[in-house]
Structure formats: C-alpha cells, structure tokens
Amino acid sequence: MKKLATGLLSGMLVLGLLAGCGQKGAAPAPGGDAAQEPSQTSGSLKIAVVPKLIGIPYFNASEQGAKQAGEDLGVEVIYTGPTQADAAAQVKVIEDLISKKVDVIAVAPNDPAALTPVLKKAKAQGIKVMDWDTKADQSVVDLSVQQVDDEVYGRHMADLLVQAMGKEEGNVAIVTGGLSAQNLNTWIDWSLKQIQEKYPNLKIIGEKIGTDEKQQVAYQKTLDLLKANPDLDGILAYSTVAPLGAAQAIQEKGLQDKVSLIGVALPTDSKPFLEDGSLDTATLWNPVNLGYLTVAAAKELAEGKTIENGQDIPNIGKVEVKEDGKTVILGPPSDFTKENAGDYNF
C-alpha cells in the first residue's frame, strides 16, 4: 500500500515546495568537521555562530553558508560549538565568546532553559543575542532565525507519512534527536496535532524515542522498535541523523515495503536510502542558506537595522518575518525523493 505515495497530489506538492527552496543557490557542504577559526575577513564586527554540535553534515553545511556570508558582507564570523549535543558544553563555548567580546552570539541551543543564564550574561555585557535553527528563551533573544514555519512543517510531515503509507490508519512511532531540542519537540507536537485532527485512526506507539543526535543510536533503537512492534506501519524521524539510522534498520530487516519512513534529512545523506525505499521522503531546507541568513541577520542586528517581512536578502531571496517582529523565517521546506535527491549538493 505504501507505494500509493507516488500519486499526483504528492508529486504536485513536491514540485511546489522545491520551487520555494531549491533555487536559492546551494553550495556543496564541506567534508570535514566544523572549524573554530573565524572566516578570513578584516571586518570590524565579530559575529559568533554556535551550532548544537560540530562535525555532522547538517551543521557543516550551515558553517559553509555562515562563513561565505562573512566574506560577502565584510564581517568576522566565528563558527564554534561542542563536539557533542550537550548544553553544558555549549555554555562553556558561549562563556569563551563573551570573553572575546564578540558583537553578536547566535546559538542553536541543545537545551534552551540551560542557556538562559549565560545568554543573559552576554546581554548584560552589551552583546546582541540571537537564536538560529532552534529557539532559545524568547525573553532573552533579540532576533530569531528559523528554517520554516513550525506548524506548517510539523503538519506537513504527518501528511507525508500518510501518503507514503497509502492509508489513514495504522501504528506509528516517533524517533527524534535530543529529547530537549525545542525545534524538534515543536515539530513533533504539530505532527501529533495533525494526526489527532486529520488522521484519528493512526495510533502512536509508545513515547518519542531519543537518539542523542547519533545515527548509530537511531539505528539500534529502531532495530529494537521493529522487533518489539512487528505490526508497525510508519515512523516519523526528527533531526538530520535520526532518519538515516532508522532507514538503516529498515533496510537491514528488508521492511521497505512494510514500514514507511519520513524524516528530516539532507538529500545527499538520504539518497542511498531513498533509492531502495527504506526512506520514503526526506524533508528539509537548505542549511547552507540558513547559515548565510543567520550571519546576514546578525549584521543587521548589530548595526541597529530591522529586517522587514518580504525583505529580499542577497543570495537568499525574500524572507518572512512573523508578527512578533523578531522571528525571521528562511522559507518553505523542500521534499527529497529518489527522483530528485541527486539534483542537490548539500
């Protein structure tokens, strides 16, 4: 039944979404771990961009965009973060950045509440505070750069899973990255709301399964999930490594035609799993552009400027600004399938 996902409605949706994000000039992601050196520029502004962790493809791609923006806009970009998705390690990174007297700190928090004290300390010393990719404490941040509208994205993932399954009933599991990650939890909440409102005959199996942003953990926990639930019909996977581990487990067990999988993942990483059907659809955005937009927005913030709704950001395009006036949205998501995954270089 899951092969019904290739119907006309799904195809039209994919084409529409790709038109929104896919044309924004992606560059290839760097191959190695994210460096902690500033981009080579003589700019007077110092902008620090702190990911959840360094060394995974998603944040490597964001680093490339951030550093390219630094070169294009004439600001110094320091891209640095912990090697594990750990809030305490992020606090140490931010403490170091405060001592370096940077002008802006933009952070993708592993645990928003855990970072509030150190972000308040940064603000007390005159440093502008932003979040990007994942929301921090909104009472602290001056500007928030987000990938997509959370509600649209979460609901979209639930719709994609039903399309892949080819039916509106069955057993579904939730696999995620860090259990405290605000963006992942928000998307999950909206997916569950969409299921409750639109697909009441879908049953969620157990609690959401955390994988600590590690593909190997996602692989092992999905194996356990499949063994414990032989009647499982679908999996929703959040974070860019969780879908890969889940797909690896489905592939190993030969369950491509039984268990549908939708996940937040990069097209290049997803391609082998998309091709054999262990991952039905990967949905994301361009992380290179996200890094670029973060630095562009940080420069505007440092210079006392305001980004307006519909403003055209060079190399990015028009962005959406929410009603709160401080949340900037990169754009709609893109869906990646076995037919189009090879068209992208991130």
Rank of each mutant, 00 (worst) to 15 (best):
E320A: 11
K198C: 05
D150K: 07
V118N: 00
A88E: 11
S62V: 06
P109C: 06
P109G: 04
Q84K: 04
G245L: 10
I195F: 08
E213K: 00
K46D: 12
V319D: 11
T306N: 03
A106K: 10
V77E: 02
P333W: 00
G81C: 14
I307F: 06
Q311H: 06
G178M: 03
G310D: 12
V129Q: 14
T281V: 15
D150V: 11
S278I: 04
L97S: 05
L4Y: 11
Y344C: 15
A85E: 09
P333E: 02
G177D: 05
T211Q: 02
D312N: 09
I262T: 04
S44C: 00
E151N: 02
K52P: 08
T116F: 09
D86I: 15
A237E: 13
A158G: 10
E37T: 15
I209A: 02
S44V: 08
A296D: 13
L244D: 01
P272F: 03
L261Q: 13
V102N: 02
H156S: 12
V162D: 08
M130Y: 04
A34S: 15
N110C: 03
D103R: 02
N60C: 10
A34P: 07
D312Q: 09
V321P: 01
L192D: 06
D96R: 11
K203V: 07
A173F: 10
A247I: 11
A298C: 12
G11Q: 15
K101F: 11
V295C: 12
V321A: 08
L45S: 02
K123C: 08
V145Y: 05
D343R: 02
V102F: 04
L17A: 01
V264A: 09
N201V: 02
I195V: 11
A27M: 09
V140F: 08
A181K: 03
N110V: 13
G20I: 06
Q163H: 08
D149I: 11
Q256M: 14
A173H: 03
L225M: 06
A114G: 03
